[in-house]
């Protein structure tokens, strides 16, 4: 890991440059996130109506939850699954394999570059605007901010791991488009981005607790909104770490299998 460190940093830098190369993408990204946050903000306000609390959420907690989970999404979201699937389909994964780096870790680094770009250039300015426009409540304790930052880093790791798995599926089937679409919806829905997990029916909550998706949005956003406090924060964090470790296993195994049966398409 360490001898490659400067190469990894450079990979993050390159992805940063690539994101900057397309300005329209950047500006339209800001607008899309603003629209999403605005829409969900007003939707939840309407759902609450005159109620003080709903599904253990206060209005203020809810609006904060919406804002922060979308801002976190800007950081952890990436298209690694699509990139990997495309590279496998068009055969350019071959070129990557002639370079002395671990392909999957390099992909993760590219995702991290993309995430940091959006965190700094979407989320931070976006969060400032959102605090001015809407009524939300930011945590006042410094350590909550720190643990939240660490947690969204793990959100990124877990989400990227799921993307690697989905993308690598292209090694085994000719078209994994359907799986990638399903995954995208599953992550947005089951991670608690669209509806917080505590709003799901009891049986569904029971299932979701055993899936990795909650670790992507629901857990860090719950910490940030102050719904999870004290030792429970550490429990939430440990759940993330466990998922990170657990997901590493199939990735390793599938990668080894894929290397054996790799068929480079074309030429």
């Amino acid at each position: 890991m360490f001898p490659m460190f400067s190469a990894y940093i450079d990979m993050i830098r390159i992805r940063f440059l690539m994101m900057l190369a397309y300005r329209v993408n950047y500006y339209s990204g800001i607008i899309i996130y603003a629209i999403n946050i605005g829409a969900y903000y007003f939707l939840w306000k309407a759902i609450f109506g005159s109620n003080e609390t709903l599904g253990e959420f206060t209005v203020l907690q809810m609006t904060t939850y919406v804002a922060v989970s979308w801002m976190a999404r800007a950081f952890y979201f990436n298209n690694l699954d699509r990139e990997i699937a495309n590279e496998i389909k068009d055969g350019s994964v071959a070129v990557q394999l002639t370079k002395p780096y671990p392909y999957l870790i390099f992909k993760m680094m590219q995702g991290l570059g993309e995430g940091l770009f959006r965190l700094l250039l979407f989320s931070v300015p976006g969060m400032v605007i959102v605090t001015l426009l809407f009524q939300i409540e930011l945590p006042t304790q410094f350590d909550v901010w720190v643990i939240f930052m660490v947690m969204i880093f793990f959100s990124f790791l877990i989400n990227s791991q799921i993307n690697l798995l989905t993308g690598m599926f292209a090694f085994f089937v000719e078209n994994n488009e359907g799986l990638m679409r399903f995954k995208r919806i599953a992550v947005d829905l089951f991670s608690g981005l669209i509806i917080p997990i505590s709003f799901f029916p009891g049986w569904a909550q029971g299932i979701l607790e055993w899936l990795p998706f909650q670790a992507i949005t629901y857990l860090p956003a719950s910490v940030f909104t102050g719904r999870v406090v004290g030792d429970a924060i550490y429990n939430a964090f440990i759940v993330q770490v466990i998922w990170f470790v657990v997901l590493s296993v199939p990735i390793y195994v599938i990668w080894k299998m894929a290397r054996r049966r790799l068929v480079v398409q074309g030429g």
Partner: peptide
């Protein structure tokens, strides 16, 4: 590979070279 590129499509050639320097 004559039909595939090892350079990064969207950025200056020198940036790819810099990355390769670090990689190797």
């Amino acid at each position: 590979f004559g039909q595939r590129s090892q350079l990064w499509w969207d950025i200056g050639v020198i940036e790819s070279f810099q990355l390769l320097k670090k990689v190797y």
